[in-house]
Design a protein around this nucleic acid. Sequence first.
DNA 1: TACGGTAGCTCG
DNA 2: GTACGAGCTACCGTAC
Length: 566
Amino acid sequence: MLFQYITDYKQALNVIHYLSQSKYIFLDTEVYIQNINKPDYSKDKIRLIQLGNNKEIFLLDIFKLKPYLDYFLPDLKELLEKKGIIGHFLKFDIKFLIGNFNIFPQIVFDTFIVSKLLFPNLQKYSLSYIYHFFTGKSLDKTEQSSNWGALELSKSQLEYAAKDISVLQEIFPILIDKISKLPKPNLKLSGSISKTFSLYHPVFLTELFLVPFISKLEIEGIYLDENKIKNIESKIKDNYSQIYYKIFKEESIRLDRQNELKHWFNKKFGIKINSPNLSEEILNSLPNTEIKILLKNFFKIKRALNKIEEIKKNLKNNRIFPEVKQIASQTGRMYFIEPNIQNIPREIKGIIKAKKGNKLIIADYSQIELRIAAEYVKEEKMIKAFKENKDLHKFTASLIFNKDYSEINDDERKKAKAINFGLLYGMNYKTLKEYLNSLDISVSEEEAKKFIDRFFNSYPAFKKWHERIKTRLKEKRKITVYSLFGRRMIANKFNDAINYPIQATGSDIFKLAIGIFIKEAEGLSFEIKNLVHDEIVLETEENKVRELANILKLSMEKAGKIILKS
DNA sequence: TACGGTAGCTCG
DNA sequence: GTACGAGCTACCGTAC
């Protein structure tokens, strides 16, 4: 394997100018990280930047070039920001490029993302693993953890660094070929990623577009005001103590002592607690007294306090730095971890607030999955109801109970809502009955069965869809199911096969909406505060709220309208 | 004391 | 025979 090791800035400039003739370049970095568990994207230094075109490989030793950075950094920035970049798990490299040099690549082809989309069920997606998967050859990664801060890099280190590029050069055409052989979704997206890599598959384009954005989000973190969090915390702590002492006074037990609680529960209610927590089921089974309400509130507050603790634990200078899992879930939904801010209890949602002088913009889709389901199977009755802006649960209730839309009561609406959602998950009558019972609506199994029958008779396209999936699964045991953008999964269970196309299309549209918004809002200052599957939360200055809110609304609508074209 | 698995809650 | 997708904590048993 041939490569050039660059330690002289004139050579570096030559390489950069030479590579600027290519449409795209291969990229990897080696970084000297002090604490491998906690990379610091500004303080930890990039040692090598490996670059390549289709044939050649160049290793830029940034430590050696350090005195001359000013001479070639602007050209390198231009190169990496304008050209297509091919790399593996580019989020990592992009974060260091931003942190070290304020270089922000935009047009990327990430072999990690692409492999995950092509083959969603591999054990791992490390470069060495997928290299072996696609070529049968192995890649030695032992030098990865070697000392990249050494004065002189060893021959073995340099060869290792160059090898990563040669591996990328080898698998890139394989991946492009595999993508081109996938079934083509009936949907066209275009843009610089599409042009640069001659790539036309919508789910790949949508995901790749988000990679730089997510890198930036991770490095910038999310602003949360510690004092505001403490205010909310102390308010609900008061509430917590009130209940705690009230129960202590009246019942002589301390609710935070597991043993006392167990003992008291058995004596007072004759209920033996086996599970560690007081489950909702146990609490619901208590007689309707004041104590039941107090206990329910107490444990709710306790859980909210736990969530506040979790967030406070991750707070650094009034910011949290969650990791964004872009395609960790099989349906394509994004997740945050450490901390996850998508499951903040409603009681403490107020901890996400704008700075003084700023405002939050919160936008979410209404009933997106039901709309997708209706379009997916072309259930005309439901589509029409949505077009007429009807309350869909009420509308379904009017069909099931054969009543006028205006005469539907709360109870009937709740039942219809359960069935509407149940539709998305492939629910059967037994679970419907249990679910309704848990809402204190008592129905028999026969009634539940009748509701579902009437639901399917009212919406025949859904009935056909469920039946078709059932037969296909019976025949084949495993079937491949697709989202609108061509995201796919192999399903062997009925519920999965029903839910996947809907939830995954929801992810497609949500991610496209983010992509459109980023493009449309370019140049305007805003900060992402949260992304919750169908909800986008932004913060911006008061005088920009109207403009940004409008752009956000239009972007989400534009993405949403895609389902109508299919 | 450290780690893996599970129940049960939170959100969509 | 089965409501879908996730993350986090408390708690439990097991291994060192």
